[in-house]
Design a protein around this nucleic acid. Structure first.
Lengths: 285, 285
DNA sequence: AACCATTTTGTAATTTAATTACACAATGTA
DNA sequence: TACATTGTGTAATTAAATTACAAAATGGTT
């Protein structure tokens, strides 16, 4: 967690004077890193030692060390600039904003993701007899993408975006099968049902979903992705991208676990596509 | 240009002693930001004023200011570097690397993307009688995702990942129809055919593909995304994410062009999902 | 409401760190 | 070799941050 976020999350544990310091810093972090402790103290209307204590409370060695941490937080930039698209934005503005907030979301996801859970998920996936990916709506395309990746590993993979098919598939699952349910909100009723059915049939259910959601509670293992979503456009955007990256991570973990020899298979799969493509050298035709 | 890069590029203009300082800093920048000027001077075997002069030469106000800049460089550096996954990486390492290289890819894409082309694409899409999204393999899920977004706009949208269906659809296209072809390499023969057929039938063809590829040459309008792809894993990863973000941008451009009243429709579409979900307040059950 | 314990805050002294001024050394040029 | 220029270090100075301690505020208890 970076210092800036830490300040925000600690804000209620600060004393009155320390809070004044926090306010001044949050109002203008850029200026803070170029101020002396005296200047900052004056601005927050507190004494210098108070500022120093404030820094220590944030687990820094002192004021200069705090500034260093702050500078790094600011340089990271993205997490703080989840900028929303506005009515009057031109192409330049909304393009930049969407790129930036997507990157910000990925950065948040990276910091919050549970590496342990990922490792366990990879474990489970490598030992699966069969892997099923289920998603609905926007998550359906993530499921398709996952299928496209895991299919290359020469493991039985299925992917359904149809509730009825999902249901039938879940009913037929058994011990050793892994079912991956994908849902940003984790509140899609149909998908919760699927997860429950799969579990009743002894399948291992991995949820790529929100922490502590109804779906999460139905799962054997939850990979939670709490990313800030821009809801102004009424469309899932950043969450979906984070889900895809998570799929990439699982797929990568899978191939690494299988060793280098296995990876030659992947190369073969990729090479098999050559016939369907124009040669690279044809580029200048 | 960040300080670290600046040191590297200035290295020949440094005096002998200043160079010693540069070497020590470059060898261990992370340690530098936690050292005093005295410690650093000793390590480089020079005097303290020399270190100070070194900092000034780099257009900083002095040593503390230099450390601030250095801290920012280091923070900036990491997330945007495209690091490759290695055989011996553990979950922690490969997770971080994949997040980081995806973010790096998005950053590159953002810098290279042609805003003008985006704007024209939005123009074309808003005026389309019908929009078709076509992709194969990994790009198929991007096409699905695009359908999921544009479908909400109450415009006729189709999406096929089957060559035969794509072909039939392309043959039936006509003036006013927009066909979006998605392919990272731009060398998938079947998709080039589709693009050609669609154009022959007077459809406008937008390509989300590599610049100057065979597919690009078949298109009316090209949105090129030249992102660095980690080919070690033999799977499309970053390119696909960049394509999705581009779809988000087009969709956003579309809604903005249509005005605020239109966006109320989107809200309705989103609200319509409520029935299929558990309430948020149910979360604590 | 008065008391004590605890926490919070500020003042002043102290320490630490960084910078400046200046002198000496090295390098290059006529 | 002499002179100018640039580079470097020592010591003095200044600036900044930290510590120690005392005063004030807060909160709970009788």
């Amino acid at each position: 967690m970076n210092v800036l976020e830490k300040i925000v999350s600690t804000v209620n544990n600060f004393s009155k004077s320390e809070r004044k310091v926090a306010d001044v810093i949050l109002a203008n972090p850029q200026m803070t890193i170029h101020s002396s402790i005296a200047a900052l103290a004056k601005m927050a209307d507190v004494s210098e030692p108070t500022v120093n204590r404030f820094c220590r409370r944030l687990d820094t060695k002192g004021f200069p060390d705090f500034k260093l941490h702050l500078a790094q937080s600011l340089a990271n930039g993205t997490p703080y600039v989840n900028r929303h698209v506005e009515e009057e934005d031109g192409p330049e503005a909304y393009t930049a904003k969407i790129f930036e907030s997507t990157m910000a979301a990925l950065d948040t996801a990276r910091q919050r993701v549970d590496i342990n859970a990922i490792n366990r998920a990879v474990d489970v996936l490598t030992q699966a007899k069969k892997i099923s990916f289920f998603g609905l709506g926007a998550s359906a395309s993530v499921a398709h993408d996952a299928q496209n990746k895991f299919f290359r590993f020469n493991v039985p993979v299925v992917c359904f975006d149809d509730i009825v098919m999902q249901r039938m598939s879940a009913i037929n699952s058994s011990d050793g099968d892994v079912v991956v349910c994908i849902s940003h909100t984790g509140r899609t009723k149909n998908l919760c049902d699927i997860a429950a059915i799969a579990r009743e049939n002894d399948a291992t259910v991995i949820g790529i979903t929100a922490y502590d959601s109804p779906l999460a509670r139905e799962c054997t293992l939850v990979l939670s992705l709490d990313v800030p979503e821009d809801t102004d456009m009424y469309m899932p955007m950043a969450s979906r991208v984070a889900q895809l990256v998570l799929i990439d991570i699982l797929a990568t973990g899978f191939t690494l676990r299988r060793g280098s020899k296995f990876r030659e298979n992947l190369k073969k799969v990729k090479d098999s596509l050559r016939g369907s493509r124009f040669d690279k050298k044809d580029l200048n035709n």
